[in-house]
Amino acid sequence: MLPGFKNLKVITLTYFEFLNEHGITLLLGTVTTVKVLVCSMILYVIISMIFGLMRLSKNILIQGIATVYIEFFRGTSLLVQLFWAYYVLPFFGISLEAFTAGVVALGLNFGAYGAEIVRAGILAVPRGQWEAAHALNFTSYKRIKRIIIPQIFPIILPPAANLTVELLKATALVALVTVVDLTFEAKQINSITWLSAQCFGTALLIYYIMARFALVPFLRWLELLAARKVGKEKI
């Protein structure tokens, strides 16, 4: 018999004991993961709005800043940015807490991707809407705020939803800068008990459940809401 099968029996027998003992720890880690997710989500949405608009500015300086920012954060790896924020910034006298460093790095990284989505969304608003707003003598601020922004949501939400699921997955990386999240707890339990299948398997399951049964339905609901608001009912 393969050695694996004997192990499999042991694993299934002890799984409930494992949950009994370490379930709470993993759940606490999950709470931190959710906190990281929510904070970085808020940050990345704000950043992508600002830089998406800046990217379309006629002012070359503003557009240049946005382009450099986007290319920089899309061009380097998230993990590098994360370590940079946590280990290198102290060299410049800026010491961030692990949680803050994680949220800032995630927000900046995903903000760069989000800005491109926002830019594409704004460009996708029909020209006639701009012209009509212009003809009605709206100021450029009012035109953006009242006419263009409400219309971009149905366009940008589907790609933004994909990006947000990616963000949930990316929050696992903050464990590497010592944020005590789900991944960190799973790693910790693994190093104590060596029940790798149980702890990493459970962690994978929790991430899967969070994405599939919480985050994705929420984002679908947002999409529906946005579509309804501009009168574009979707299935």
Binding site: L2, P3, N7, V165, A172, L173, F200, G201, L204, Y208
Partner: peptide, 25 residues
């Protein structure tokens, strides 16, 4: 596909790296 796509690559790495030896691989 849905499962693999909605779970972090990092934990998948840990899973493959630490769990396979338990099954003798």
């Amino acid at each position: 596909v849905e499962f693999i796509r909605s779970t972090p690559l990092l934990i998948q790495l840990f899973f493959v790296y630490f769990v396979l030896p338990q099954f003798g691989i």
